[in-house]
């Protein structure tokens, strides 16, 4: 019996140690490409950890956003940085791994980057600014917060009053049957609205920094194009399913949005373009749709004597569905646009 109880704990211990090891390797690897790949692996293992912790929603989001989108963004950025570096005709400081060029193959050489200061451009190497003694000192100093935080977590061992019961008591009135979705869209909907605004803000920031579209203008691989044509409609279907299922099971707008975004990226990579006449205000409208629908819905109810973002009884369900659909579209479009980089 005891061994049966110990087995899950042993698995969890291995998972936790894997997490720490991957994080350490990702942060200390001298090869940037390897670091990014290890970081993506970290995200995937983290996804497993979330499943172990009964947080399936987070697991989905972690794998789609934390590992998937972040990983894709990192790889794309790395490819652009390194192709710019190759252009300055310096000896590359990064060790060329077998797989490294894969990321380069994804991106065209960044023609816009200026010829640059070169002597210093390659100085990075394994890239620490600090002498080793200082680093050791810092590591020793960091043992204090490590021990302190560990001690505090140990203190938190005793179960504290959470909000589980309160959420369960009000779930009926929230318009959805899945507690996490209820918290996200109804109980703490104000946070989620602003979070959508943060995502949009990131795109505004990215577009304010660069003007040229960067990615996906290279020659296409026929196999990739074929797969994209096969997968894109499927992914749209999966996104729709995730929105729908979010009402009563793990899933929802953010997970669905990232699937939609991935579909957009695939289509882009296989040569599809947003038609030029749609890149102006129609595209911008899609990008802001989620925030607009959410915000307007929240304000309109005030005219009916409800509080801000407080849906009248019986109206919560359709309202939340409309918000989720609009948010999914916008999240998908924003994520794809973030990956592509330059504004149209």
């Amino acid at each position: 019996m005891a061994s049966l109880n110990l087995l899950p704990l042993a698995i969890d211990l291995v998972l936790a140690l894997t997490l720490l090891w991957l994080a350490w390797r990702a942060l200390s690897s001298p090869d940037l490409f390897r670091a990014v790949v290890l970081f993506i692996a970290l995200g995937l293992v983290l996804g497993l950890v979330w499943v172990r912790l009964d947080a399936v929603d987070i697991a989905l989001a972690e794998i789609a956003l934390g590992a998937g989108v972040t990983g894709a963004l990192l790889l794309a950025a790395l490819a652009k940085l390194q192709s710019a570096e190759a252009e300055t005709a310096d000896a590359s400081t990064e060790q060329e791994g077998d797989w490294q060029g894969c990321s380069q193959a994804l991106a065209e050489p960044d023609a816009k980057s200026k010829p640059t200061l070169t002597a210093s451009a390659t100085m990075d190497a394994t890239g620490s600014a600090m002498p080793i003694a200082l680093r050791i000192l810092l590591a020793l100093l960091l043992l204090v917060p490590l021990a302190g935080l560990g001690w505090v977590v140990w203190q938190l061992w005793l179960p504290a009053p959470g909000l589980t019961d309160l959420v369960a008591a009000r779930l009926e009135a929230s318009g959805v049957a899945h507690p996490v979705t209820a918290v996200l869209l109804n109980f703490r909907g104000y946070d989620t609205l602003l979070e959508l605004a943060v995502l949009l803000l990131a795109l505004l920031g990215v577009w304010s920094l660069s003007s040229a579209p960067h990615l996906g203008d290279e020659e296409q691989e026929p196999a990739l194009a074929a797969l994209s044509r096969l997968l894109a409609p499927l992914m749209i279907l999966v996104a729709a399913y995730l929105v729908w299922v979010g009402a009563h099971a793990p899933g929802g707008a953010f997970q669905a949005g990232s699937v939609l975004g991935a579909a957009g990226v695939l289509l882009r990579l296989s040569g599809w373009r947003v038609p030029p006449r749609a890149t102006g205000w129609p595209l911008r409208l899609v990008l802001v749709l989620g925030v607009v629908v959410f915000a307007c819905m929240g304000l309109v109810v005030m005219a009916f004597g409800q509080p801000l973002l407080g849906y009248p009884p019986g109206w919560a369900k359709p309202a939340l569905l409309a918000i989720e659909l609009a948010a999914t579209l916008s999240i998908g479009a924003i994520l794809a646009a973030l990956f592509i980089g330059g504004r149209p």
């Binding site: 009964d54 589980t164 959420v167």
Partner: peptide
């Protein structure tokens, strides 16, 4: 059941 409130917070945080 795990507490859904911090789970929702983490979803926000990931985004």
């Amino acid at each position: 059941e795990p507490d859904p409130v911090p789970q929702a917070m983490v979803l926000t945080g990931i985004v």
